[in-house]
Amino acid sequence: MTAISVAGLVKTFGATRALDELDLTVRSGEVHGFLGPNGAGKSTTIRILLGLLRRDAGQVSVLGGDPWQDAVGLHRRLAYVPGDVNLWPNLSGGEAIDLFGALRGGLDPARRDELLRRFDLDPTKKCRTYSKGNRQKVAIVAAFASDVELLVLDEPTSGLDPLMEAVFREYVSALRDAGRTVLLSSHVMSEVEALCDRVSIIRAGRTVESGTLAELRHLTRTPMTVETERPVDGLADLAGVHAVTVSGPTTRFEVESGTLDPVLTHLARFGVRTLTSTPPTLEELFMRHYGDGSDAVPAERAVPAGTR
């Protein structure tokens, strides 16, 4: 069962080709990470999935329907947290939550109260006094308190502090356990790593990778550090080995997945004392997709995971 399927999606704004034959498949019941740097086209894709923007070309189906034709019917079955939550200044947070709930077809009052408590949100404050994080909490509480099949979350934690981010993760895990589908866009690696079953990585309006975290990891090199009794030599000549540096007993190198066996055999000849390997983070996946080649690396792509 697929909850969302997108194929060859194109969207242009004047001269800007925001989406350039983008593909995306989200299976029912999974938490799907939608990863890409700022300006990659995540929000544009999501707005097309919600029928807020019209596609120029390509196939799009959401919960089995066409988001442009069947918008109202589909919206009863999904909840959306926009990347930039904007509320009415003279409504209280509680009023905004109830309003979104009612317009979606009702929300669970007990769950709403629990969420307000867990996210530490005062619902009697006027929205004009809320910070970005608090506005985001309003949208999150309204979305999580609704009984829907699909949640579309566009960079939902960009204004939350780490404590609230942990609460957010807890609820997303619970949603997955309850069989709900979640599309979570992000440019924060740690979030996607912690939460997602599968990931699609997009860049400049195109999908560059898609798969489980394990599948994506195999695409990259594993950095290793080895301490040996005698200095290692000849390692760089082996297939799939890169970036070898030897300093006395310590050798650092990167190895492509699938070529590890001959490397270990080679190392054994030098008397291995310790061997450590660090699996690549999504950050490193990003660096591989966007960090090499002729394209300049925008500053935000070089930001380490978890820092903003």
Binding site: G94, E95, L99, K126
Partner: peptide
């Protein structure tokens, strides 16, 4: 200090109710 209600009054929970709230001033 002017706070709002913690839950929405019924009158607000419709598009027409919301529009009135936004236009009434």
């Amino acid at each position: 200090v002017r706070r709002g209600p913690a839950t929405a009054p019924r009158a607000l929970l419709s598009p027409v109710g919301l529009a009135w709230r936004l236009q009434r001033g």
